[in-house]
Write a protein that binds this DNA or RNA. Structure first.
Lengths: 208, 208, 208, 208
DNA sequence: AATGAATGAGAGTTCATTCAT
DNA sequence: GATGAATGAACTCTCATTCAT
């Protein structure tokens, strides 16, 4: 056993600490207004050290994107697909999917990605595939299963999934993107999701 | 009659010309990367002149926002509310509301506003009220009328309107925000709207 | 008559002042060690102003090269070709050609050009054609005329010119390039040239 | 017998390896643009190790200078002074002296020394004494011997030596310093030397 | 009203050097 | 002796803004 593991750990954890700080700064002020000097100062090191870990500001931002894509993916993969009935399942999924897009990190991250995706399509693609796309797939799986069990009318499950997510997210998402009004409370989120579930069941539920 | 009116006209039209150019530049590269030098050069004047019309870059951006809010409002106010039946009305509204958010200027404008709304809530609010909110009101009016005529089940028309718009927009909107895939074609837009109308009618249409 | 001439004059003379200072700095410390900050400070202006006149350090160096090539060319074109006899003519030319390459600006300039010609062949070419090549042509012209008048044996005048210049310059030139010993005095220069003329005449003069 | 000798050898050969790499880098990009990082990377070690062998970049450059001075001296001391006749001897010497100054390492080394001799006269002096001065001494020795044997007219042999070397080198040397035109071929070198020998013999050879 | 030269703070980045391990 | 992480000063260059003309 060499000394390597310890060193590696130190280096890796320092790297992570830098990305931690950089994430905060990027989300606070955006890519352009985030300065390497400020990030270095907040990390408690020198600019030179920053450049020992990341070749450029762009690369540091790349590390940020990578981390938050992984985080998104984790959230999407962790989505509870088990539930007593369709409504409960949709409600659970809807809450997470709305919350993630409308509050805290999730929202600020989306805003940031959207702002930079123009310059670099790779960024947006990575995020879209890790987040929204995966989320929709999870919802679609739930719907498909329910259809197989006769608890939902048949039809394109992916399309239905997107429509459900849309009804959950869109209104508050657009408002938050515009920084319009305060961040929604859990109650508002529940209400929005409940309404979406209701409409969804009216459209896709078993005929009365 | 003084010479003033003519001068005023010149001044106003020059001001407009500056905002024209600035709009292009802001939408092309974003607020941070838009430089006053480049704008001045494209206008064909000097930087000093720019500052004769706008006290700061921020104020010039304010003029941009103002203009595009007015434009959004115009679009929303022009929405055709007359149509032979509910489906046709929703389809027409849905197409416009999706198109505006997913293509060309409308999308780039939304991205830009979203990126800057963090710094200055006033910007996002102005835009949100002129655009999304007004659009939803138009759709709600249509729904309300249809309910009054017994062609849609009763229920909160504003909520229903948001849900309809959501189903039209959300999927492609998020994809475009992430710069994911190419700009949607008219056919794709029609298909998305048609699917939304179908689901909406299944949920809110008169019981079979 | 507009205000333009005055402005142009100001701008041009300021530009010249910058190149003046930059020339000094480049010759003192070389291209790499010359900093834009120092140049700006010595000019008595800000770094920003420097960049209003020259897009980059490289371009400023380009202006330096241009100026000193023009200066070299002027010197070479001004070479006195009229003289009572061949010896006197060669002596006059030799003195100038040796002096220019071995003292003050001329030497420092050559050193600088040589150091940077590797990166950018255009620089070296411009200088070589303006300076050494033109100088040799002047000497060759003198020799040719003397040959026509029967005062020098026939033979390739260009080759003879280069050999004459070589005998004048080479020893002290190499020493100065190496910063070996003090800058030669006028007397040393005269002695070196006199020796070159003597040998040249022994080789190319009319047979005894 | 301690372990020291072996260690010393290792240390010395590692040191040599570093100077090998540093020489390449210095000659490729010059002193200022040679970075310790690049040198360390090419050596295959760390920057820290570099500083175990050389206290500073300047000192490493000193080692480079030392090595190349020794190399120059070797070349000069190896010059063949034996030859069937004066012409042959001069031709042989001239070829080497021209080649060394006009091609490959020799030229790049001269350029480098010239660029840095301004900062540090010691560098230039060391090189000048090891190279040009020693070369001239060798040529002078040949000339002196020939004079003693009556094959050359009497006169200052050192001065004659410098003039001969000058005629060999000067034209192509200045061109190469300016990076003007391609590196001379062996044939061009031979021609230049032959012309120098011819002129030299016309001036210094026995009277017809 | 228009100009454009001047500014100076601050950006991202590099690099010789140090030092704890 | 070797390492490589850390440093901080210095670099080139940009830009919003000001102001005399």
């Amino acid at each position: 056993m060499t000394v390597e593991p310890r060193t590696r750990l130190d280096r890796d954890s320092r790297r992570e600490a830098i990305v931690d700080v950089a994430s905060d700064v990027f989300m606070e002020v955006g890519y352009a207004d985030a300065s390497m000097s400020v990030i270095a100062a907040r990390v408690g090191g020198s600019k030179g050290t920053l450049y020992n870990y990341f070749r450029s500001k762009e690369e540091l931002f790349g590390a940020y994107v990578e981390r938050h894509c992984a985080r998104q993916q984790q959230i999407m993969d962790d989505l509870v697909v088990q539930a007593p009935d369709v409504q409960a399942g949709l409600t659970a999924l809807g809450r997470t999917l709305l919350t993630v897009v409308v509050t805290g990190f999730g929202l600020r991250n989306f805003t940031l990605i959207a702002a930079e995706a123009g310059r670099s399509p790779a960024i947006g693609r990575a995020f879209y595939e890790a987040g929204p796309q995966r989320g929709a797939a999870q919802v679609a799986r739930l719907i498909e299963r329910a259809q197989a069990e006769g608890r939902l009318r048949s039809g394109d499950p992916v399309r239905a999934a997107h429509q459900f997510i849309a009804m959950c997210q869109n209104r508050l998402f657009k408002a938050r993107l515009c920084n319009y009004g305060p961040e929604p409370t859990a109650a508002e989120i529940d209400a929005e999701v409940a309404a979406a579930v209701e409409t969804f069941m009216a459209a896709f539920g078993p005929r009365a």
